[in-house]
Design a protein around this nucleic acid. Structure first.
Lengths: 208, 208
DNA sequence: CATAAAATGGACCGGCAAGTCCAGAAACTG
DNA sequence: CAGTTTCTGGACTTGCCGGTCCATTTTATG
């Protein structure tokens, strides 16, 4: 995934640690201050590094660093849904997943680093756009698999379009989170999730 | 709605026209370049005004102007759904509304000025947050009324929580739009809308 | 241990964009 | 038409922040 430049210098273990520290620190800063409110100097201060180090590890400057942060945050989004997301085989498992998602964003509150990153960086650079697309695809695929499990076990009508419903779920979460971010209210996320899940449940298994 | 400062100077009709021109021009610029990519100088050039005029009409500087733009765009969001949004009495009307929403955002494409504004301004200022909350409330209220109509005419089960379903619809649209903005794909918006509407339709009218 | 490569510190530069200021033109008010 | 207020133009200031540069230290390698 990570796009390595052609003449990428080999990283010492020390160098790698520093690089990681920068990405991690930048992510934290952005979570607190937003992208526009975060300067390289803030990151430098927080990570106890120097300007030259940032440019040493991210020759592309701020944009490249931001992309690295976005990539990291995208991973985190999926990680935080585990182990639930990969085991959506029963209604109980789905409920657990639903709760995990709500809890995750409840904890995160107003700060969705990825969302902010997307709207501020993604708009401009194709690389960021590709990143987002990939995350959404993976997410949707996992949910689709979960829905298929329910169909296989006869809990959901086979005629239901699993992919489309998974897409709706992803959108529902995204919308709920956006509203959470801009109003501080959790209700829409819950309503959106529950409503879509209700549709799944009320789909009478036709072949029983 | 508009928050007038205490010592707000009375505006001449000419002044009012200039003020409007600035807001409108700023909105256009933001739609094209995004908030971060828009400078006061860009706005100045586009609207054929001078720096001092911008600060004359928006003493609070860029932030105040941005808020005015956001306010205008929020109005537009609801306006663009009319006359459908206020007449959700039949399934056909709902379908028309759904199509209008999809068409609106299809046309708008990657640029959701309000969304961008919210994530970039709203995060910081309580005023912007209040603005967003108001928009969402109004939107949700309109949809809730529409659902109640269906319940009154016996097309939808009365036991359905109209408010919660309306909230889910708003979130679904918001999520679909966010994904559209960051990937350019329209499918999620459609899937989210249709899935939620399907739930409405499959709600068997119990009392018939 | 010698040499090269990588890592680090921090001073410095340059541009950009928000915001200020004042002088003068236009427009209300009596 | 006199006086006051509003409106307009644009030069100027200021601070910030991304990015550059080079000197120095540390680490790999044979």
């Amino acid at each position: 995934m990570t796009v390595e430049g052609a003449g990428a210098p080999r990283l010492t273990s020390k160098g790698l640690a520093t690089r990681r520290r920068i990405v991690e620190g930048a992510a934290e800063e952005i979570r607190e201050q937003g992208v526009t409110g975060t300067t390289l100097d803030d990151i430098r201060a927080r990570t106890a590094t120097s300007k030259s180090q940032i440019f040493h590890y991210f020759p592309g400057g701020k944009e490249e660093l931001l992309l690295a942060v976005a990539s990291r945050e995208a991973e985190r989004v999926l990680e935080d849904q585990e182990p639930h997301l990969s085991n959506l085989r029963t209604w109980a498992a789905w409920q657990d997943w639903r709760d995990a998602v709500v809890r995750r964003y409840e904890r995160q509150g107003v700060n969705c680093p990825l969302g902010v990153l997307i709207t501020e960086v993604g708009r401009a650079t194709p690389a960021a756009q590709a990143l987002t697309a990939r995350l959404i695809d993976q997410w949707q695929a996992a949910l689709r698999t979960g829905i298929r499990h329910l169909q296989d076990s006869g809990d959901v009508d086979r005629r239901l379009d699993a992919d489309r419903t998974a897409a709706a779920l992803v959108a529902a979460i995204q919308g709920g989170v956006t509203i959470l971010m801009s109003t501080g209210r959790l209700t829409h996320l819950e309503a959106a999730l529950d409503t879509t899940l209700t549709l799944l449940r009320t789909t009478a298994p036709a072949t029983r």
